[in-house]
Nucleic acid binder design. Structure first.
Lengths: 364, 364
DNA sequence: CTGTTAGCGCCTTCAT
DNA sequence: ATGAAGGCGCTAACAG
């Protein structure tokens, strides 16, 4: 009978209008129902409730029934947090990201694919996104969640990979040299070559590049691929045509504007990622430069947005979603204690032809 | 003195060779470093460590320094879980989804946009994805996380909205009638009208529809929009031209085949979502019906695939990401205790013209 | 300024 | 078959 008399704790949340004064189901008392309350309502001890929930032996059939009914009525569900804290095993895998942007969410979909039907739950965590928390977010996130909320984690695009965690960790697209972690990455160098070779085959010779964040391995490899393709075709790289866009829209717009405003602008631009390529498209439009008529643009990543762009973007596709899948499969195997053979996987990239590239105009 | 004598609890994790008796940088002992260990290593009490971490007053400068150093050296980071369990406030907002698919991840990006720089962390949670867990996932997830891991939550496409949680909850694209929850949705009715009006303006009069899942509000509204647009133009709806596609490809193909096989087939079809519209395209191709020559098709959603279709799909766009943003803004305001005025927002949709629509052929 | 004490919600021996 | 007690990692009163 103590259930109806709890005037001490004011409800901070919203009260639903639905009058519940009607039949049986004791108006699911508001807010967090704890095992405590279930026990009280059922007139048994907390531990008995726990046993019922976890299907432990040593509870009479009728007690089980009764408690189960109370649980249903109250809409009780064990707190993930409390349970995690207590148990070593949580049955949850985590995807740790710096931010939720196109790349990481695509990886997330892949991880979800692989986790489906395994009985694991999935948690994606971002410490908040911007700048401040940049340095070492992967270490912090890992420490904060691992072994206390998740059984294992997929690290998306980590800058630091010499992390130490007491559970399995797999990196996707690691950015710090030969990783100390099991990892899944795309073949950046090959991809960049593909993209630039496409432009060269179209007849372009003045090809500029918006590079990525110089401290990241993928950025370096893509730039190297660009240089290799140019060199292989006997074309020289005009340093004035290489600008950094830092893998992000803001800087990329600035870089693109510099690149396209000059008198002797390139006829084609290879961007280190789609976000940068989209920025180029935007700037070109501002400047009245027709794409692909007067300027060809090739991106890298093939994020969903790239196809929605106007014109749709020719880009180098990374099998992002697949990367997430493979990472998750590795992770689950590692959690299961199986020994995984190929701890460092590199997936092939491919060129996706769309509408942002064309042969250069024959000017004079 | 009881700190060094805890032989009862065997470390289940991996043991590193590093003896702790040596010099300075005690090789960051592996795995989960707890406050306990930091305290022991620093020779102070646990609560002192806690105070240092939380910047509480009443700790001598040198102690702060010392403890801080130890924390750095050990790479300690407070467990999100333990902290959440203790505090009422967690500084984390959750996005609860049935699964990580294109729609929900798009919402997620929007939420992330809005959360940036607010100091909140973001957790996206999916109970596993498929079928089994369908019914009531929103209720379960909410109960499991709210007030114990997150301060508030965004529910994506919940089927049930009469949930009771002890914290703010905002629904995005709720599917269960006038929601009892604060909600953000797209203007399905208006969108449907836009799509159908476009067909009418092109000159179509025999316009069919592939409807969605009849138990979902969005489906009902889209159908209503279709009927209203028809009525407004003085066109009557031939019931034989309205078939259910259940929002999914399989059923939609069947429906499309029925619709297009008849002798008196429609000259245009409005589909309740892009997936259905794509099915129509497919069936039309099978049947040798030219789109948009002999048949115009309009979809709803504007998923990336719609632009890749052949021909690319004219469709009604929902501002999905924006919906996530608004939901998050509402949520943060609610958490902050501000009173939000507009608790049920409807965002405008817009028509995206592509290549699957054209005037009807003048047959005879 | 520092340490002790008491839980947050849950699960698990260990008694009864 | 049931309940009491202790503790997961952390914080917030209260002592000293």
């Amino acid at each position: 009978m103590k259930l109806d008399s709890t005037p001490d704790d004011v409800v901070p949340g919203l009260l639903v209008g639905a009058g519940a004064g009607t039949r049986v189901p004791t108006p699911p008392l508001r807010g967090r129902v704890t095992m405590q309350q279930v026990a009280a309502e059922a007139g048994v001890s907390i531990s008995t409730v726990s046993k019922v929930i976890n299907g432990r032996y040593g509870v009479s059939t009728e007690t089980v029934d009764h408690v189960t009914r109370v649980i249903d009525r109250l809409g009780y569900e064990a707190s993930l947090v409390a349970r995690s804290l207590r148990n070593r095993r949580t049955n949850v895998v985590g995807v740790l990201v710096m931010d939720f942007e196109p790349f990481s969410t695509e990886v997330l979909k892949g991880v979800a694919d692989a986790v489906h039907g395994t009985g694991y739950e999935l948690i994606a965590y971002s410490a908040g996104g911007h700048e401040e928390a940049r340095e070492g977010w992967e270490r912090r996130s890992l420490t904060r969640l691992m072994a206390t909320l998740v059984d294992g984690a997929v690290l998306v695009t980590p800058t630091v990979t010499d992390v130490q965690a007491d559970g399995p960790v797999v990196a996707v697209d690691p950015q710090a040299g030969p990783s100390a972690l099991p990892a899944v990455a795309a073949h950046n160098l090959q991809g960049a070559r593909l993209g630039v070779e496409h432009l060269i085959e179209l007849g372009h010779t003045r090809i500029g590049m918006i590079t990525g964040r110089s401290d990241l391995m993928s950025a370096q490899q893509r730039e190297q691929g660009y240089r290799e393709a140019m060199a292989a075709a006997g074309l020289c790289v005009d340093q004035a045509l290489v600008r950094s866009g830092g893998f992000e829209p803001g800087l990329s717009r600035v870089a693109a504007r510099e690149l396209l405003s000059g008198t002797d602008r390139p006829t084609a631009v290879f961007a280190a990622n789609d976000l940068s390529a989209l920025a180029v498209l935007e700037v070109a439009r501002d400047l009245g430069i027709d794409v692909p008529g007067q300027l060809s643009v090739v991106g890298f990543d093939n994020i969903p947005e790239s196809v929605l762009a106007e014109p749709s973007l020719t880009t180098v596709q990374q099998p992002i979603r697949r990367m997430g899948q493979e990472a998750a499969e590795m992770l689950l195997a590692l959690i299961a204690g199986e020994d995984v053979h190929d701890l460092d996987r590199t997936l092939d990239t491919s060129l996706v032809l769309r509408s942002s590239t064309a042969p250069p105009v024959q000017v004079r």
